[in-house]
Amino acid sequence: MSTETGAGTDATDAGNSPASSIDTESVRAVAKKDFQDAVRSWLFWGLSAFFFTLMAALAGFLSWANPDNFTTISFIALVSQVCKLIIPLIALLLGWKAIAGEREAGSIKILLSLPHSRKDVLLGKLLGRTAVLSLSLLIGFLIAMVAVVFAVSEFSFPAYIAFLAMTIVYGLAYMSIAVSLSSLTRSTTMAGAAMFGIFVLFYIVWNSIRTALGLLMQRGYIEGVTYTTTGLTGQQIETTRLPDWALFIDMIDPGNAYQNTITLFSALSSDRIGTRFPTAAFPDGLPFFLQDWFSLLILLFWIAVPLAVALYRFDRVDI
């Protein structure tokens, strides 16, 4: 992934790089305007319709395939698999032009002619776009809830809402990545390339890492951890797993972190979704960084870190 910041236009050459302040009223004003703008786009209405159709179709499918054992949990397990894959795409699609597009059209000058700091604009954009994504999720989830309530044998409202909330946090993480990258680029072409880079990184590269690490372990480049477990027929089997740090790399992926955190807030066990570790593999207990609560921190990391970098950089470039 590469970002263009316009070589030679860094303002730091004046030895004078003022950090702008954050004003919550300004952030709110920018977010409101951005929301008003984006909520009128076909993208938003398309998304809402898409979510609703998706949820209703999945609920219908589950109740048809497994009418006796269709629970809220099994619904969430299935839908979260789908959300894990499509939320990033939608967030990148909604967010990639957030700043780069306004810079290209020049309308960023309208925002910055007003008493808003660059940080206000960045935060306002992130909140506005996330609000649009959240609203379309909310519409889709709530309408679909009606279908789910009738289809499942036992509806769990708290689990459903927790699932929605975590999906919104997941969306916020990818929106933070998208808007931040958008602010680091000068053109929408570069921003688009950056979004594609993110897509490749988490959809392809990250998914291959675990396989790659396993291969490296088999060839002896990585020292595995050997443990014994009881096999199906009762005998003791000695197997090898990846070391903790290698397992952690897999946990960093926002999608994995998202699924792991759902288990925190719903009664869903990690057997169904997210990362699962056999108990026998960790006789001394799971290290804290592989536990589900740590995944929440990872998700928060993906919100905070891209944003922090963007807040720092965006203050220092020529518009």
């Binding site: 003022p18 786009s41 020049g106 309308s107 309208i110 002619s113 808003h116």
Partner: peptide
């Protein structure tokens, strides 16, 4: 102009050049 930009812009009205409006608003 750099350190107190927000205060300046609070009291300044700007008509920028070569700028597109927000199409949907």
């Amino acid at each position: 102009a750099q350190r107190q930009s927000r205060e300046i812009r609070q009291r300044t009205g700007v008509l920028p050049e070569g700028v597109e409006l927000y199409d949907r608003l």
